[in-house]
């Protein structure tokens, strides 16, 4: 009676686990979360907590009553979806909308495909886009930021986002140069969704993930570079019609998308070749929507569209096989 374990090799493991990956991502999101608290006050906490709680709850309910499978909420992926969804929302959005968004994100975006790893689209973005289309008013009305430890700067209840402001201004015929210089100097503070405003905090989190080898550096760099190059080219050609590239790089959800959503494992290609194509596509679509589309912001649409291409990219971009370089 020895009761040894019999298993196929290998018998040791590298120690990486789904849980560790997920909690690393959550840790990496913390700087941006703290910054959003600073920027929007406790509304940021409210939105994030409701969103996370709703996402985890929906996943648990579905696993318990619909799938009747093993419960996996402890792996932390629902928490990430919750945080990312919250980061895509304005801080004054009503709680019931967040809950509906969470139900769509987890229920339709993730669990209906079979849960973690099987979803073709980024669940948080599915929820976000659903809300954007269903509640266009609430989703595009941003409150004036109320930074902690400082006096409110304006009396206005709502404030524009940087990109929205520029899009509107350009439509009214104001030159891009005026828009930027004038507004930047007057008052620095723009509004936006929770994760849109702290680009530096997001980069810090992203660097943590790159060092931790949870994500690769190529994807965010390619996306940012693509957006940057196209924006720079346009700006050089016509600085009146197009704003400075830095606005595109640091404004809007580019950083959040590039570091946290385009790198989502389940919805991005597997090989490096594929990842480059994928991120080139995201970058190009983002800047096209931003410059010529109806929406001021194009990141979420770009990622969702490229998500749809992932199976195809996976099929085409095979890794270089060993022993293939020699012609047979």
């Amino acid at each position: 009676m020895n009761n040894y374990t019999i298993s196929g090799s290998p018998h040791v493991h590298g120690g990486e686990s789904t849980k560790k990956i997920m909690y690393s991502v959550i840790i990496a999101l913390m700087p941006a979360f703290l910054f959003s608290i600073y920027y929007f006050g406790f509304d940021a906490v409210r939105v994030t907590l409701i969103s996370v709680a709703a996402c985890v709850m929906v996943e648990w309910l579905i696993q318990k009553f619909l799938i009747k499978g093993q419960c996996t909420i402890s792996d932390g992926s629902a928490i990430i979806t919750g945080i990312l969804l919250a980061f895509n929302l304005p801080s004054n959005i009503p709680a019931w909308m967040i809950i509906i968004g969470s139900i769509v994100a987890i229920g339709i975006g993730k669990m209906s495909f079979g849960g973690l790893g099987n979803n073709p689209f980024n669940p948080a973005l599915v929820g976000r886009v659903f809300m954007l289309i269903s509640f266009p008013k609430a989703m595009t009305t941003w409150p004036t930021p109320q930074p902690l430890f400082s006096n409110a700067l304006t009396d206005a209840v709502t404030g524009p986002t940087l990109l929205g402001h520029i899009k509107e201004g350009l439509a009214q015929g104001i030159s891009a140069q005026d828009l930027i210089i004038y507004e930047n100097i007057k008052d620095f503070i723009y509004s936006g969704s929770l994760g849109e405003i702290g680009s530096i905090a997001i980069i810090i989190g992203g660097l943590f993930l790159i060092i931790r080898k949870v994500i690769d550096w190529q994807t965010p760099v390619t996306i940012i570079a693509t957006v940057g190059i196209v924006a720079t080219a346009c700006w050089l050609i016509d600085p009146v019609q197009f704003v400075h590239p830095m606005v595109h790089i640091f404004g809007g959800g580019l950083m959040l998308g590039a570091f946290f959503m385009a790198t989502d494992m389940a919805t991005s290609p597997m090989t490096m070749k594929g990842k480059i194509i994928f991120s080139l596509g995201i970058g190009a679509l983002t800047i096209i929507i931003r410059l010529w589309g109806a929406y001021p912001e194009g990141m979420s649409f770009a990622i969702l569209i490229m998500n749809a291409f992932v199976p195809l990219i996976n099929k085409v971009c095979k890794p270089t096989r060993f022993g293939n370089t020699v012609k047979q």
Partner: peptide, 20 residues
Amino acid sequence: APKKTHYEGADICAFAHTLF
């Protein structure tokens, strides 16, 4: 036939058959 060892791995008889 009490079990003396326990198998952990893919649920395929054909594979386990080759292991032990």
